[in-house]
Design a protein around this nucleic acid. Structure first.
Length: 670
DNA sequence: CAGAGGAGCCTTTTT
DNA sequence: GGCTCCTCTG
């Protein structure tokens, strides 16, 4: 397919900084992949000097695939396609000495982070959950704004901020002792380093000679800075974004970065992609009209040549079980009539918890499905345990991991022993592991407890040495064997069936680790420390044998659907309180929710179906939700409300204002 | 020290 | 309503 004039311009402009404002479905991935090909084939760039950065692993994977459809393997060799966080990790790994980090550092996920902060603030916050979560987000915001503890203390506004700054300093010291980093550090540390260290900056500017950033509207302050530092004076970069798809402001994303770029680079070339190649007419109409309710920095209007065909439907369900039943029945019926593949259907929802009933329903009907995103796999105890063991193998000073598995399976190391060990370690400023070997410990902890702890630590040393000697595979295998984990699973699981499932998950992890250690045609072999970090970054789902034969219904949150497209899309739970989410209604943050709805709608190619419930159970309580305001904002002539329960016409709504909602509610109760 | 049972929380979204 | 963490008991 030929590029349209705007796309063509976006691909071929390489003389300076370039901003591409790309509406949903306007072919931005095509622009990026074509541009990479253009740089390599026509402009004498080496693939290894080009980096393309996205936000999610899914997007990075997809882009890799797309590039390999355009470029041959040898042409693409060395091309860097990764998430911001992986790029940061690459920089840290190369510069870890300058950053004063030991090689086998651990990456703390948010649960580890939370546990540590809770521990560190026991006296001040005393388990006050709200304050704790404020602390977590305050620290994260500071890091995203490149604010270090000393400056945090200086800019603190009120007593709580002063306290938080002090906790922040404590937290950083402790992380150092654990040889651990958190997610925000993966951006913060490279950015600060590149800012202050000329030599390092030059190296990376020389390495990355052309930078492409996808989903630019999702960058936060430190990522914005990182882009600028890498691009340097020459400012050879292309960023692609859509302010209407900015759905991550809650984690520090600043869509204003799109506007800011104009000020920082007066020579910035701005290109708009407005032709949509994805969605049927009605669907695009819905998207356009919905998003017109938001204020805009850049006016853009998507248009399309695609035909109008089936209208967008709105289905009602009695309750959430019924909703799941209906969606699944719709999919089965539609598939039967049209001979589509299950993989062409996607079910999108606001919150992860909504997947449960859908899963159940799909399972009862023996429909294959795939849930992407969500934390379920990594939040299973057996998976967490295995991760903790792997982390200890690489970095025994990781106290969180230590505490998690020191007595799993049972090693006769109870809370009393651990408390004694903890107090001692604390007083010595050492990790639990390091403290275990000290002579001084014997005054606090003795006898069986001490023996058991030391036995465990010695075992860790042995396995760690084996891994460091290069036998990472063997070390991991021996580790699982040594701890008799399988036996422990059968002992501790409610049924043999459950134990089997759990062992499956353990095997999955083991399989992933092996594959990553060995590498593949497309990916270099990794070292064990790296494997462990990449697992924490969730940077590895389904590599190797692709069971994805296009026969799995796709389930995901609206957030993780961004950047994807599906022939048939269901958006479930279109109710006030769910979408828009109640907390966003309370905080008067409807615009972002509207963008979220916009993202969902624009995923659909052929058909779009909304569903909503008349009754829903929430915290065990029965509620009668109202239909989402977004449904009412859509162009009603394009909508097919089931049973012809159309809400009042546009003019009627204008005249009656609020009354339309009441009408609709009355209609519901029939 | 382990398992059972209860209190209390929860449902925003991700790297 | 269901999950996790905590406490109490054996």
């Amino acid at each position: 397919m030929k590029l349209n004039p705007a796309q063509d311009q976006a691909v071929h402009f390489i003389g300076g900084p370039c901003l591409v404002l790309a509406g949903a479905g306007s072919g931005k991935t095509r622009v990026i992949t074509n541009k990479i090909a253009y740089l390599v084939r026509k402009c004498d760039y080496k693939a290894r000097n080009i980096a393309a950065v996205t936000f999610t692993n899914k997007a990075a994977r997809e882009m890799k695939e797309r590039v390999l459809q355009t470029l041959s393997k040898s042409e693409a060799r060395g091309l860097m396609v990764s998430t911001f966080h992986s790029l940061g990790l690459d920089i840290i790994r190369r510069e870890h000495k300058t950053l004063n980090l030991k090689a086998g550092f651990t990456l703390f996920d948010d649960q580890d982070q939370l546990a540590l902060l809770k521990d560190l603030t026991e006296q001040e916050l005393d388990g006050d959950k709200e304050a704790l979560s404020r602390l977590v987000s305050t620290i994260s915001n500071w890091k995203n704004d490149l604010v270090l503890p000393t400056r945090a203390a200086r800019i603190a506004q009120d007593p709580e901020q002063v306290l938080f700054a002090e906790c922040y300093a404590r937290y950083q010291r402790q992380m150092k002792a654990y040889n651990a980093l958190d997610f925000d550090d993966l951006i913060l540390m490279p950015t600060l380093l590149l800012k202050t260290n000329d030599e390092v900056r030059q190296f990376w500017q020389n390495k990355i000679r052309y930078l492409l950033v996808d989903e630019y509207q999702d960058t936060n302050a430190s990522q914005y800075e990182l882009v600028k530092l890498i691009a340097g004076e020459r400012a050879r970069f292309t960023v692609v974004g859509d302010d209407d798809q900015s759905i991550y402001s809650w984690r520090g994303a600043r869509p204003q970065n799109l506007v800011l770029l104009k000020d920082d680079y007066p020579q910035l070339k701005v290109i708009m992609l407005e032709q949509n190649y994805r969605s049927r007419g009605q669907i695009l109409q819905c998207a356009n009209i919905l998003i017109a309710n938001n204020p805009h920095d850049f006016e853009k209007k998507l248009f399309s040549d695609m035909a109008y065909e089936a209208p967008v439907r709105v289905l009602f369900a009695k309750n959430e079980e019924h909703e799941a039943e209906r969606v699944v029945a719709e999919i089965m019926g539609h598939k039967f009539m049209n001979g589509a593949k299950f993989g062409q259907y996607a079910i999108l929802y606001r919150g992860n918890h909504q997947s449960r009933l859908l899963e159940k329903q799909l399972m009862t009907n023996r429909i294959p499905y795939k849930i992407s995103g969500g934390t379920s796999f990594f939040s299973r105890t057996e998976v967490k345990d295995m991760m903790a063991y792997l982390r200890l193998l690489v970095n025994p000073d990781d106290d969180n991991a230590f505490l998690r598995v020191v007595n799993t399976p049972r090693r006769e190391i109870g809370p009393t022993s651990l408390e004694k060990l903890g107090t001692y370690a604390n007083s010595r400023g050492k990790s639990l592991f390091a403290a275990s070997f000290e002579i001084g410990l014997e005054q606090t902890l003795d006898g069986r407890g001490l023996m058991a702890v030391r036995a465990f630590c010695n075992w860790l040393v042995r396995r760690g040495e084996e891994a460091a000697r290069g036998g990472a595979q063997d070390a991991v295998r021996d580790m699982i064997k040594d701890i008799n984990y399988e036996e422990w699973l059968y002992e501790s699981s409610p049924s043999p069936r459950a134990a089997e499932m759990r062992m499956q998950n353990v095997s999955t992890i083991f399989k992933w680790v092996s594959q990553m250690l060995e590498g593949s045609e497309l990916e270099d072999a990794m070292t064990l420390p790296e494997v462990v970090i990449r697992l924490t970054l969730r940077d590895m789902m389904e590599r190797g044998e692709d069971e994805d034969d296009g026969e799995q219904v796709q389930l995901m949150t609206l957030h993780s659907s961004k950047g994807l497209e599906f022939p048939y899309v269901f958006m479930v739970g279109m109710e006030e309180g769910l979408l828009p989410h109640q907390s966003s209604i309370d905080e008067d943050n409807i615009e972002e929710e509207r963008r979220l709805a916009y993202v969902g709608i624009t995923r659909a190619q052929q058909a779009l179906t909304f569903t909503l419930c008349r009754e829903r159970r929430q915290y065990g309580e029965q509620i009668r939700p109202e239909p989402s305001r977004f449904l009412l904002e859509l162009p009603q002539q394009e909508l097919d409300w089931e049973h012809n329960r159309k809400p009042p016409s546009e003019t009627e709504r204008m005249e009656k204002g609020q009354a339309s909602v009441a009408n609709l509610r009355a209609m519901f109760k029939k």
